[in-house]
Design a protein around this nucleic acid. Sequence first.
DNA 1: CGCGTAGTTGACGAGAGTCAACTATAGTGG
DNA 2: CCACTATAGTTGACTCTCGTCAACTACGCG
Lengths: 248, 248
Amino acid sequence: MGKRKTTPLKDYAPDGHHCSLELKTSKLGMVSFFRDLKQEDLDEIVKRFSATHYREGAEIYYQGDPANYLRVVVDGAVKLLRYTDEGKDVVLDILEPGSYFGSLKLLGSDVYTESAVAQSGCCILSVGLKDFREILQEYPSVGIAILEVSAEKLRSSQEQIKQLTTEPVETRIANILLTLTEKFGENKKEGTLIQLPFSRKDLADMAGTTTESASRVMSNFQKEGIIETGRQWVALKDIKKLRTIIED
Amino acid sequence: MGKRKTTPLKDYAPDGHHCSLELKTSKLGMVSFFRDLKQEDLDEIVKRFSATHYREGAEIYYQGDPANYLRVVVDGAVKLLRYTDEGKDVVLDILEPGSYFGSLKLLGSDVYTESAVAQSGCCILSVGLKDFREILQEYPSVGIAILEVSAEKLRSSQEQIKQLTTEPVETRIANILLTLTEKFGENKKEGTLIQLPFSRKDLADMAGTTTESASRVMSNFQKEGIIETGRQWVALKDIKKLRTIIED
DNA sequence: CGCGTAGTTGACGAGAGTCAACTATAGTGG
DNA sequence: CCACTATAGTTGACTCTCGTCAACTACGCG
């Protein structure tokens, strides 16, 4: 079976590419706190956002930068992480289109507490805090919706804590694969392909482990036929087995 | 030095005890999202809350219960935790007077994602979601303030994730001791006494480790003169040394 | 086709979990 | 007030997961 494995990932358009207004509006409407708005309201709101394209690996902002923008992923994926003093990275989340990130500090000018990197080429909408505060004034339902989202983010963060303290590396990685499949999975001949350039280091930084350990776990998964994987890509072949590992 | 160690912790009033209206109002004003309100507004708001007293160890609510109340600690301490399937507890936070907890899900009737236990005897204010939504309507500044608080909670949760993945147990425990001292420390002859019934198991559940490991670390700290400790209590004697351990 | 980077694999060791026996403290009741 | 008991805390020995170091292989780009 020495067949050469080449990346099945789709190419993202390089810069110069521009997302359509329709796409922008549609993704904006997926953001949880704009979800309940009417189409015409969305059309108004989208005007206040400006779009930027980032190529893979580009830094969108760096932790410690003044936090003046709220952003929304329109296309591609964004990785949120914290660099530690010892040079270890901790990946907090990988965001799919329709997610927001950036600052929710609405008063004063605080700084970002995490860094954001374009995991793939991606298109990002951003809005200044002044504009956003005006949006809040005009559409009060947005404020309440944001509270729910924040609570949800907190909850998932706490879930991560629980896992780190109670689950072994293998289970944590299985969970991550499952989540990523839900967010970025596309059905291909290899199985459900996670449509995302995604290295062992990324995986390790998400699971709170090392590249070597991540590699070992992935090798085992592949041996057991659970996944198919190559350089920078993963496809899930047997979700059931993966779930079994998680249940333990 | 075989002197018998007895608890230096103060007794909390048993039930039947009632907090004064002044105390309630004052602690409510410490809650971050009420901080900017005028005294007369606070006086109005406090009327919507009702006070309950819990004795040490009492369950305030259980994860999975319908989440219908937002609560504020007036006196004593509250432990937020999640029970895992395998019976391991994960302590998410220990709250001091002036902290809020409970639900921020304002729409629909969702369930609590964590459990709350009275760590010491304590007095709690609670407000139903309907009332709270009315408060939000009347005092719009509260909504914005809540966003900041949520962001802050998320941040500290992420900090915990970072520590779990990068710091050894000793450092994590040192950090916890420092935080608790800031929240609950009172100067006594033993040093800065953490005014809180606080077991090795609590500590272990906060640090994501076992009681045995926590005990070993605490023994070392005591040998080195950093802390003084006994059954259910801890006093910090040498903050500088503790900070040295954290810096590493 | 060859170089650089991603990924793999093995050997080893240290930190931390487990199991178990033991000691100390606080609260109870005689 | 003291003895008794339940529970918190300690300590040791052992084990095992996972991190570290290092050599190696494979993929993909130019």
